[in-house]
Design a protein around this nucleic acid. Structure first.
Lengths: 262, 262
DNA sequence: TGTATCGGTTCATATAATGAACCTGTGTTT
DNA sequence: AAACACAGGTTCATTATATGAACCGATACA
């Protein structure tokens, strides 16, 4: 580990819950010497990554991180940041993979990749995804604000015989997502398509969208389900990371439990 | 200069205009060895501050900066980030100093500090500042979008005999700001108050507000004006920096020219 | 085919990072 | 008020780590 990585590592101890950290606290957190840590902090202060709160004498995040984030957001759009992960997901599962983003109360399809493995495959040709009838949508409802579910209930359009069109049915589906960390949709938007979905998070810590695998019903079985879930977890972590977020611990716990059971 | 600061310095070469930089380009920019620079870049890549664009093999800003900026924005509000600078400004000028922020088409007073140096002094008791009748307001108009000036012209309320209430007068005042980098208001909101103002910028690169000194007319002279302008520049740079922005070069050039003339 | 430039790697050397011990100030306990 | 604990900050000999000349392999171009 280089001196530079050790220095940068200090930044990872800041959070919205712990916005200010003193020298001694840093020493405890890193198990490093006081002098070393002090010099590391000075390096960060020189470049503006941290600053001292003159009142508390503790260190806090500096202003220099703001323009960097601005550059990242402006120059690396979400789509390209998710693309590689979706391609990998499609390749690993042999099915169609896609990512959707939540904007307001609408879920937009961002990028979809079909796998050439099978001649029959799901095609994602929707610009916006119905919240109540897709795996992505129900996943978003499960981790999004209540207002989102309320909005979804305003328009429970029927697409197939299997579409959930009752509030009770939707609530039950949402509950299952909260328990497992995954969202299922079995023929609810198209008869022969089974969907599996996991949530995505950005730097705001709130849900930002969903990553999904759309499989053809006839080849969907327990074995495929296990593979897809495993790959979805990897993709969700990767994409969330690229968007500046991370998977909340409760969801990681759900995933562990769900995978252990199968 | 420590290895850590050298490493972090690399990040400052990224901009929205140059979002991707290769190893050799970094070497030229820093006049450092290839091996050294390569290791620095690796350190940054490990912690997610940069990532390689797999297509171009060049480096670009990484996702790790996003949560850091989020923490900064959530835990260090603009007010406290400007406070120290405003206090220093009031102290150095012996007058009342204040900072205002632009939100939508409204200019809000964020923080004001009175200097105890004189028994007569300006008092900023406004929650929102009229765009056409204050130094802060005209400064904001000069560097803000056109729509802002159009909005301001909708309501050219008269406060004193000296308030600009014509569109032509306002346009002329704005033009003077664009030429000098400073905004003046001589009794346009209160008869005996002379204001001097400089713009503030945040990480978006657009105008974020203004920093001003409100002086009592009777003691305002060329000497005071020079001092105030000089201090305003320092304050504007500091506050903009704390908000994640910087002063655009054209404005810095205006300031240099204006100060040289006096 | 030669060569110019790119990203990346190696290894002896020299420089810069390290931490035990030492200040200094502040607030608390006795 | 003396004694103590803990905070941030500093010093200097020792040691580990950063450094850069030279090298490698790939790509592009004339």
């Amino acid at each position: 580990m280089t001196s530079a990585t050790k220095t940068l590592e200090l930044l990872s101890f800041f959070s919205e819950q712990h916005p200010e950290i003193g020298l001694s606290q840093f020493c405890k957190l890193t198990s490093r010497d006081k002098a070393t840590t002090y010099r590391h902090l000075q390096s960060l202060e020189i470049v503006g990554f941290i600053e001292k709160n003159p009142l508390t004498k503790k260190y806090r995040m500096g202003p220099a991180v703001l323009p960097l984030a601005q550059i990242r957001e402006r120059t690396v759009p979400r789509k390209s940041a998710a693309k590689a992960s979706v391609e990998q997901l499609a390749d690993a599962t042999g099915e169609t993979a896609h990512v959707s983003v939540l904007s307001g109360t609408t879920l937009y399809s961002l990028v979809a990749v079909e796998s050439p493995k099978h001649s029959t495959r799901a095609i994602v040709d929707l610009k916006t995804l119905p919240l109540h009838a897709t795996a992505s949508g129900i996943c978003t409802l499960a981790y999004g604000p209540d207002i989102l579910t309320q909005t979804a209930k305003q328009n429970l359009e029927r697409f197939t015989a299997k579409t959930q069109t009752t509030e009770q049915g939707l609530d039950a589906a949402i509950q299952r997502v909260k328990e497992t960390g995954f969202s299922h949709s079995k023929g609810s938007i198209e008869e022969d398509i089974y969907g599996l979905s996991a949530p995505l998070f950005d730097q705001s810590g709130t849900i930002a969208g969903a990553v999904s695998v759309a499989s053809v019903a006839t080849r969907f079985n327990a074995d495929a389900e296990r593979t897809i879930k495993h790959q979805l977890i990897l993709a969700s972590r990767q994409i969330s990371h690229n968007w500046g977020g991370s998977i909340p611990n409760p969801i990681e716990a759900c995933w562990s439990k769900t995978l252990a059971e199968t």
